[in-house]
Design a protein around this nucleic acid. Sequence first.
DNA 1: CATGCATAGTTCGTCGCACGAATTAAAAAG
DNA 2: CTTTTTAATTCGTGCGACGAACTATGCATG
Lengths: 160, 160
Amino acid sequence: MGKPDDGPIGIVAALVRSSFLVNAVYAKSAREYGLTPQQGQLLCVLMARPHGMSELGAMLSLAKSSLTGLVDRTERNGLVRREPDPQDTRAVWVALTAQGSKVAGEFYTETCRRIEELPGSLNPAERDTLAALLGRVVLDNEVPAVFLEPDEGGSAARER
Amino acid sequence: MGKPDDGPIGIVAALVRSSFLVNAVYAKSAREYGLTPQQGQLLCVLMARPHGMSELGAMLSLAKSSLTGLVDRTERNGLVRREPDPQDTRAVWVALTAQGSKVAGEFYTETCRRIEELPGSLNPAERDTLAALLGRVVLDNEVPAVFLEPDEGGSAARER
DNA sequence: CATGCATAGTTCGTCGCACGAATTAAAAAG
DNA sequence: CTTTTTAATTCGTGCGACGAACTATGCATG
């Protein structure tokens, strides 16, 4: 058998290295919008609709204190706001501000564009196959919607 | 057209969400070995062989000061050591210690196992297709070997 | 209605980690 | 020999992760 790195890589290395690639692209894009990757992620989740802290914490797999800090910093940047919950005075809803919607939309659109370029050497059928297979993996593992579908994100980004 | 979340997800959302999933699994695994994700990543890179700081910085896309700190902390944990470069007294090589090799091997093996389970609902042909397509994306984008192939990693982990 | 339990979120303390600018020391180029 | 380039570290700063403890509120029970 040839050297391992001469052959096709396995599913495990492929998944980990593609994750590294996506993280790098995501972080670079976020940085260009004055965001950290975590702030970008928060904004993307909130593009769909406002969320409670408990729900956000669960989606982002963060300790409660981590989320409090992240929302504090993002609120201080004027991108989100906390709103009281009329039904439960303990709870708050986190929503995008007008500026937050604008930044989130732009960040999201540009990040979509960059991520879309990554599989650039695949033909359309191969892309569809990759999307279908990865999509099943994501579905089966119940990954939260930390990034909207372009259809969802596009309409959310346009509703400004 | 049906609701966007009823249909198959697109390549962009698939890539970002699968990255989120892999990150979560990787972080959880690292944590169980007393490592942070960044330390785990450093150890995995070093499983192949010792690296210079410049090469490590390039592979991990880190600022030089960030890498210095990461190596400081991992050295303090007894998992890596800095060795002088006989050819260039400015430079250092970073290598795994005996304990570092052990921890890296165990972390790597367990993380492989967990990542391998993610596409559990795909049949073998589908897994091979996914690996081939993602592998091409990774290759075309020149992603560094931040995670060894199981063949490489297995032999590296066994060389103890 | 009062009490106890559960939940929502924040505060606190700590450590890891990211960056850029500046610095020191050594190697390379002229 | 001097100047430029390179390797890595130090410094200062801010972000982000955690767990424990806390405060306040809602819910269930007697």
